[in-house]
Design a binder for these strands. Structure first.
Length: 298
DNA sequence: AACACTACCAACCGCATCAGA
DNA sequence: ATCTGATGCGGTTGGTAGTGT
C-alpha cells in the first residue's frame, strides 16, 4: 500500500530553484500570502513544484529577515546549550534565534559547530590510539545509544571544565558503583586496549542512558544541562549518580521538587523550551525504568 | 592540469501531528 | 471516534565549490 504521494511526482520539477521561480513565489506570497494551502499554491501560480518544496523554499530562503551564515559566538552558545538540553529539536532552537531557520541551524550544527566543539576534546587528548579504540568499542557496545546522546554527553562533559580538580569527574572516589553489566563492558574494552585507557570520562559514557531517557521522571539531560548552568556541586554529584546508576532512584525523594523548581526558574530560554522539557519528562519517565530493569536482569 | 577528497548547504523524503469533515 | 489531507519536522542525500596531492 504505502502512503499516497503529496503531489504528482512525474510533473514536478526537482532540484535547485531558478531566480525566476524564486521571484514568482516571492511576489505571489508577498501579495497574497500562502492562502493557507501550500499544496494548491504552485498550481495557482504556474510553478511546476511540489507544495512542500514551495513551503520549504519560502521558509528557508525567500521570506524576509532571513540571515544566512555568519553565526556569532553568542548564537553558537545558544545552539550548543539548547542542543545539550533538548536535543535535535531544530525548530525550537531556531525559535530562539531570530532570522535563523531550523534547516540552517541543523546544517551549521552538523557541518561545523559539532566538529568545532567535539573536535576540541579529541585534539587535546594525548593518546589518540586509546581514544579511538574506546570510541570504536563504545560504538559497538552501545549501538542503542544514539549519536545525538553521545554528542550531547561529550559536549556536556566539556562544559564541565574538566580541568577543575574539584569536579565530580575528576574525583573517582565520588563515583557511584557501576552496574555489573557496565563493569563487564568496561573490562572488555580495557582488554582491547593494551595501554592505560583509564580515562574515566569515557567510562562514564558507557554508563549513561539515552538522551531522552529519564530517571524517576527527571530527564537526564535536563539534569546535565542544569549542571552546566550553575547547579551546586552537591546537586551535580547527586544528578551524576542518577545518570550512572539507575538503582540510585531512591534519591528521588531527596530530589523531589528540585526538578520542577529548576525547570521553572533556572533555564534562561522561553516557555517553549520549558514546555518541551516538561513534555519529555512526562512522556518518557515510564520507559526509562522498564529499559533499565530489562538491562539489569540480563 | 587533473584528480581525489572534504566541507558545505539546498533540497528532498518520509514520518508524525494537526485540523477539519 | 474515525478518517483523510495538509502541514511541520528532522534525517538524509546529492550537487557544487574549495582544497590538497
Amino acid at each position: 500500500m504505502g502512503r499516497a504521494p503529496c503531489c504528482d511526482k512525474a510533473n514536478v520539477k526537482k532540484g535547485p530553484w531558478s531566480p525566476e521561480e524564486d521571484a514568482t513565489l516571492k511576489a505571489y506570497i508577498e501579495e497574497n500570502g500562502t492562502g493557507g494551502n501550500w499544496i494548491a499554491l504552485p498550481q495557482k501560480i504556474g510553478l511546476k513544484r511540489c507544495g512542500k518544496s514551495c513551503r520549504l523554499r519560502w521558509l528557508n530562503y525567500l521570506r524576509p529577515n532571513i540571515k544566512h551564515g555568519g553565526f556569532s559566538e553568542e548564537e553558537d552558545n545558544i545552539i550548543c546549550n539548547l542542543y545539550i538540553s533538548i536535543g535535535s529539536r531544530w525548530s525550537i532552537i531556531a525559535a530562539q534565534l531570530p532570522g535563523r531557520t531550523d534547516n540552517d541551524i541543523k546544517n551549521y550544527w552538523n557541518t561545523r559547530l559539532k566538529k568545532k566543539l567535539l573536535g576540541r576534546r579529541k585534539q587535546s587528548g594525548t593518546n589518540r590510539g586509546s581514544q579511538d579504540l574506546m570510541k570504536d568499542a563504545s560504538d559497538d557496545a552501545h549501538q542503542a545509544l544514539s549519536s545525538s546522546a553521545l554528542e550531547r554527553l561529550q559536549l556536556h562533559m566539556q562544559l564541565q571544565n574538566l580541568q577543575n580538580p574539584f569536579s565530580f569527574y575528576n574525583n573517582p572516589a565520588l563515583w557511584p558503583k557501576l552496574h555489573p553489566f557496565q563493569e563487564k563492558m568496561i573490562q572488555t574494552v580495557q582488554s582491547m586496549n593494551d595501554q592505560n585507557c583509564s580515562n574515566p570520562l569515557m567510562m562514564q559514557q558507557f554508563a549513561l542512558p539515552n538522551h531522552d531517557q529519564t530517571v524517576q521522571g527527571h530527564n537526564v539531560n535536563d539534569l546535565l544541562y542544569e549542571q552546566t548552568t550553575g547547579a551546586s556541586l552537591a546537586i551535580e554529584e547527586q544528578y551524576a549518580k542518577l545518570c550512572i546508576n539507575p538503582k540510585m532512584a531512591e534519591l528521588e525523594n531527596a530530589l523531589n521538587g528540585m526538578s520542577s523548581s529548576f525547570i521553572s526558574t533556572s533555564n534562561p530560554v522561553d516557555s517553549t523550551i520549558v514546555a518541551a522539557k516538561a513534555d519529555g519528562i512526562e512522556q518518557q519517565s515510564q520507559g526509562m525504568f522498564q529499559d533499565y530493569e530489562l538491562g539489569y536482569n540480563l
